[in-house]
């Protein structure tokens, strides 16, 4: 993200009153800036940083929701317990698979959707407005609606597949072989439009001169998108992938409301797993797992930024004669 932010930022002009008395004015301005920033930073310290420290401490304790008297420090025990638990590794593996698969599908579909909506027909604006609706409605309301659609007996999905394609009725969400795929399908339904819209905004910010040059050179169709559009909107693509990766690893709502991790543990992604630990009352263990999710997210972000940085450097080196 840093690399992109650096490129997108306009050059910083000198302060407004710079010519008058540079030193003193700049210093006074900086002090005011800190004052304006302070309330926001203090609140975030109290409501984000402090809870993080609190959670970190808790992860080294045994603490029960139902019996607060037994709370005491136990060192690394919670972490050791998790590392020894096969179901923990299972949920981490499932979460990584989930994030990679879901984001890949959404990026590809989102790109095609963006191309499809990137046209000058009457009503294109309305289509773009309509398609974004899924992004704005709550995963809870939609997750429950999808549960009804995938309901085995009277659900719409089975009816369409049965009358339209002659498939047998199937228990999509309550069979361990299809539950995760069904969940992925719903997640893609909700988030593909988000990606499409951001890519579309990128496509439409390509300057008319470039498009005109492409037209004169008869660069069209697949070549146009592959050779001109994708390289130009690459920064946007990278940031969107990053945001979606992080959000997919943290996913809770949809997973919780549609399957709650089941059947068995076939859809037990990290955050819902962590919630089940809370339900059992092991607060220390829950905090420890929460921290491991945070670390997992950081690993993914850093690995991603690292690759981004390296390909960027390689691309720049290739540009030099």
């Amino acid at each position: 993200m840093t690399a992109v932010a650096v490129e997108a930022r306009p050059p910083r002009a000198a302060g407004p009153s710079a010519p008058l008395r540079p030193g003193a004015v700049a210093r006074q301005q900086r002090r005011t800036a800190y004052l304006l920033l302070a309330p926001c930073v203090i609140i975030l310290l109290a409501l984000a940083i402090f809870p993080l420290i609190f959670s970190g401490t808790l992860s080294f304790k045994v603490d029960s929701l139902y019996n607060p008297d037994i709370a005491r420090f136990v060192g690394w025990r919670n972490y050791n317990d998790l590392f020894d638990d096969r179901r923990f590794w299972n949920s981490i593996e499932l979460t990584v698979i989930w994030a990679v698969v879901v984001v890949s599908i959404q990026m590809v579909l989102g790109f095609f959707l963006a191309v499809l909506l990137d046209r000058k027909m009457k009503g294109a604006g309305l289509l773009r407005t309509l398609i974004i609706i899924p992004v704005f409605i709550s995963p809870i309301a939609m997750g429950l609606t999808w549960r009804f659609i995938f309901e085995p007996v009277s659900g719409l999905a089975n009816w369409i597949l049965n009358t339209g394609f002659g498939l047998e009725k199937w228990t999509w969400l309550s069979h361990k072989d299809t539950a995760l795929a069904t969940l992925m399908f719903v997640d893609c339904w909700q988030w593909t439009p988000f990606i499409a819209l951001i890519l579309l905004a990128g496509m439409q910010s390509i300057s008319p001169e470039i498009n005109e040059a492409a037209r004169l050179d008869r660069v069209r169709g697949v070549t146009y998108y592959w050779r001109i559009v994708i390289p130009l909107i690459r920064p946007v693509i990278m940031v969107v992938i990053l945001i979606r990766l992080v959000d997919s690893i943290r996913i809770f709502d949809l997973n919780f409301i549609m399957t709650k991790g089941g059947p068995g543990s076939s859809t037990l992604l990290a955050s819902v797993y962590d919630y089940t630990i809370f339900e059992q009352g092991h607060l220390g263990l829950m905090a420890a797992y929460g921290f491991l999710i945070l670390i997992l997210i950081n690993i993914v972000v850093l690995a991603f930024l690292n690759t981004l940085y390296r390909t960027e450097k390689a691309a720049r080196a290739a540009d030099q004669p």
């Binding site: 000198a14 900086r30 809870p51 993080l52 945070l294």
Partner: peptide, 25 residues
């Protein structure tokens, strides 16, 4: 706008809090 030292860093640090998993806090 105020030429704050590390203004962009502040903004990025603030934004990064958006990525905290809910179950942690």
């Amino acid at each position: 706008r105020m030429g704050l030292m590390g203004g962009d860093t502040w903004a990025l640090v603030i934004l990064s809090l958006r990525f905290l998993p809910g179950v942690v806090v």
